[in-house]
Amino acid sequence: MEFLSQVAAVAWKDLRVEFRSREILYTMTFFAAMVLLIFSFAFVTREGVVLPDVIPGILWVAVAFSGTLGLSRAFDRERESDTMRGLLLAPCSRTAIFLGKAIGIATFILIVEIVVVPMTAVLFGAPLFDHAVPLVLILILATIGYSVVGSVFAAMLLRTRSRDVLLPVVLYPILVPLLIAGTKATAALLEGAGDPTAVADLDAAYFWIKFLAVYDMIFIATALWTFESLVIE
């Protein structure tokens, strides 16, 4: 129980600090919205409509990019005020700190998604909310996976000089299955959009949701097992 309260304490600290200035939230959300906009220019057809097939891809690319931004910024903050040392000196286990930070980042990404997903639905006319339950499951599972893996690498990169550039370099190859699953699941939900008689491929969506769950379990286990040895300050 003490472990969980430690995790909660660390997470709550992060969230409280963030809500004071809301810097990360605003910049992440704005960046995600910009990415959506840029992709809308990139993929618009002659008739001025965005190809429906690329909408899930656009959404997940926006989430991936803004997630990286938030991760690096959140850990930078720790480094700047040198609070990492304070955290490590505190009488709580490293694992609790790690999980707490991961939960903090996950919350940021979820908040960004809460803004960006409706924006996608509105801007691109994608009926994402027709199947809200699978959609929410996809978003939550993907966000958990993203934040756990991202936290491990961002923590490792804390004191590295080229951390801004190296975080994407190390993170994206690991995140590929997660992004594939998220995109394919969203695409399955959007299948037949615009065609009133078509039905979304819920079987495929649930398959990818299960895949996301497996991904999360495997990587949470790997992260918990190795991060103590990987992240030593």
Binding site: M156, S162, L166, V170, I174, P177, I180, K184, V214, T222
Partner: peptide, 27 residues
């Protein structure tokens, strides 16, 4: 380019990457 802690960082990448292979393949 990983600086002084490059070896640990690279080790982490290699471990996570190796675990990742079957997942990528199946997906």
């Amino acid at each position: 380019y990983g600086g002084p802690s490059a070896d640990r960082l690279a080790a982490g990448l290699a471990i996570f990457g190796a675990v990742n292979i079957p997942l990528v393949y199946f997906s």
